[in-house]
Design a binder for these strands. Structure first.
Lengths: 157, 157
DNA sequence: TATTGTTATACTCTATAACTATA
DNA sequence: TATAGTTATAGAGTATAACAATA
């Protein structure tokens, strides 16, 4: 059973000195990530879909016949943990596992018609979410933000 | 027992179309956050300290006598989950729980001498980590990045 | 009545190891 | 031998509800 994650209670704040935390990129990125995820989970609540499921659905939609291992490497989700995730998408009738011709070990994943409809709906919800959370920055600022984050990510290896 | 989180295996990547994911702020922020956290956990491995513990230590250091509820609200960690976290810091001899004069329900947290030494060491490790992960961006870019992330976070309520 | 810290509990996400069936 | 998917399992992190002590 999924739960709607509520923000931690932000009651009358006693003035707390955060020290050097606000100067740490890890702290600021983490707080932003949590806030964004809470927002998108709320946005996708009508379909009860979580970010991980959305990203897998997106990959299957963009790469019909893709193998679980390829998804694993592309998204940084371990193969073992994808089993239940894909299983849930299959249980919902959104994704099909079909054996790949020429390699009977592998499963080629495809969206069903229902899955394509769900993904279309989710993309609309995601777009609305995106507009909301980026409403106070310009598209140029968003582009710069993404570029800097990718550089930070590349530098964090 | 803590484990050293390894990056998900990034083997010979079959070309996968990520669809619209790279255009989603949530996706880019999340991937960056995971990479940064893996990096800082490695950086703090000598003291076997995780990001949550570091942030609590920082707050106690900057706010001697702070109550657990104040930490909870400042960091977005629920009171209930702070119990074990602070307990571990106390077990390590880094933090003391003392009853607050005038309110015997509360615990005022303070660093011990050992805790101050540990925090000093951690701040050095954190600074090294910070230099590494931001080495490919300018200080102006870092400032802009933080500003934009805070705006995204504020917009995600 | 409300608040502080706490306990108990459960769910999600992530991690490793080992298995099976194929290659 | 190696790979794809799977199972079993364990550890973080995070969520809720309810309790005792105190305000």
């Amino acid at each position: 059973m999924p739960r709607s994650p509520k923000a931690a209670p932000q009651a009358s704040p006693p003035i707390v000195d955060l020290g050097e935390l606000p100067g740490h990129i890890g702290y600021v990125v983490r707080r932003a990530q949590v806030a964004i995820f809470q927002h998108i989970i709320r946005a996708m609540a009508p379909l009860n879909v979580r970010p991980g499921q959305f990203s897998v659905l997106t990959l299957v939609g963009a790469n019909p016949g893709i193998r679980q291992t390829a998804i694993s490497e592309a998204l940084g989700i371990r193969r073992a943990n994808l089993v239940a995730l894909v299983g849930e998408l299959e249980r919902r009738g959104w994704v099909q596992r079909a054996t790949v011709v020429g390699d009977r070990r592998a499963h080629g994943l495809r969206l069903t018609a229902k899955g394509r409809a769900a993904l279309a709906r989710l993309k609309t919800l995601a777009a609305g979410h995106e507009r909301r959370v980026t409403r106070t920055i310009t598209s140029r600022e968003k582009r710069d933000l993404m570029r800097l984050l990718r550089r930070i990510r590349d530098a964090s290896t």
